[in-house]
Amino acid sequence: MKSLIIDRPSKRSLQQKYIDNSLKVIMLLGWLYLALPALTFGIWYIAYTFFNQHLILLEGYKEYKTITSYWYLIIIANMLVVTFAWSKGNKYFSKKEASVHADTCLPVRESSEFFHVAEEDILRYRKMKKMTVFYDEVGSIVRVATP
């Protein structure tokens, strides 16, 4: 039986097709662009409803106030005072410990001893613009070459 419903997009004029398809693309892009902000608005709304229900309607703020009126502030203040005092005290007492740190510029000799590379080699490497470094299996430098 011939369908009573007539739905033949292919019969549209070129102008109609162009307008329809353009609108589809715009709607799709609009949806893609707005979906995340809309969802995020939704999350804000849920957060608001939780706030309204638990802190306002169920009077959660009273319980909060009972505790906070005194103890929260005292504890936070104490945490801060103790930590700042701790920090200042350490800074004062660590001056002597810190003074053992040597003045600037690490001598090449010390790098040489640490990396087991000859001083003259280090000085030569430091003048090179490009180099390739080879290591052994434990990670010690065995050879430095110019590519």
Partner: peptide
């Protein structure tokens, strides 16, 4: 300046070199 490590040694070794 460019340092090529002949094989992958990890970030710490690269920085040490």
């Amino acid at each position: 300046r460019v340092i090529h490590l002949a094989s992958n040694q990890g970030k710490a070794m690269a920085l040490n070199s």
